[in-house]
Design a protein around this nucleic acid. Structure first.
Lengths: 98, 98
DNA sequence: TAAAAATACTCCATAGGTATTTTAT
DNA sequence: ATAAAATACCTATGGAGTATTTTTA
């Protein structure tokens, strides 16, 4: 499972629409469709019920959505924190002398 | 970033040894070495200082380690919860009648 | 000098694309 | 009839492997 996949799923769940999500994510609709299909194969069950008018999360989909948001939040914080360290610390050990 | 990569990094950080981690993860030592190299390229800086005797995390590595553990924990919970739903709910809506 | 990590390749799986078809309202 | 998702196919990237070399305590 790639964190990118969680982003994809979150975008669909939020937009309730594959095409809109694909635009938001800057990937093609078929690629997004395939990604979700593969996620569903990996999890061994449907995450999303789709018709041409509606996109509805299954019970498992809802569970994943809740957790995906948390994981994505944590990952964003991680990146931000690492970026801070890169700017300030540059990965080196700093010994302060007053 | 794949969650698998966080697992790899976590294993190295915990074992303080690439070879041991590779064994634990059931992948080859060179593959693991390459994965970390690519992670470091993606983050744009070293995560681990390695000599033949020591594996030491950089400041960024330490930050990633802390967060990786949290994310991996969350992901494990996610999988467990989804497995529960699959067993019980089978993705369908259940209405209880007493 | 010996144990551990890095490098150099090879191979295959899969993420992503474009073109098109199917489906449901 | 139309808008949205699915399917079919192709390509390229990169994850994983084996064999080997480099490094440092």
């Amino acid at each position: 499972m790639d964190i990118r996949h969680l982003k994809y799923f979150e975008s669909i769940a939020r937009n309730k629409n594959f095409t809109k999500a694909a635009e938001e994510l800057f990937i093609s609709q078929p690629s997004l469709s395939n990604m979700i299909k593969k996620m569903e194969e990996n999890f061994g069950s449907k995450l999303i019920e789709r018709t041409t008018r509606e996109v509805i999360l299954t019970e498992m989909g809802e569970a994943l959505y809740v957790h995906a948001k948390k994981i994505l939040g944590l990952y964003t914080i991680t990146l931000k924190e690492m970026e801070e360290i890169k700017k300030i610390g540059k990965g080196e050990i700093h010994i302060g002398i007053i």
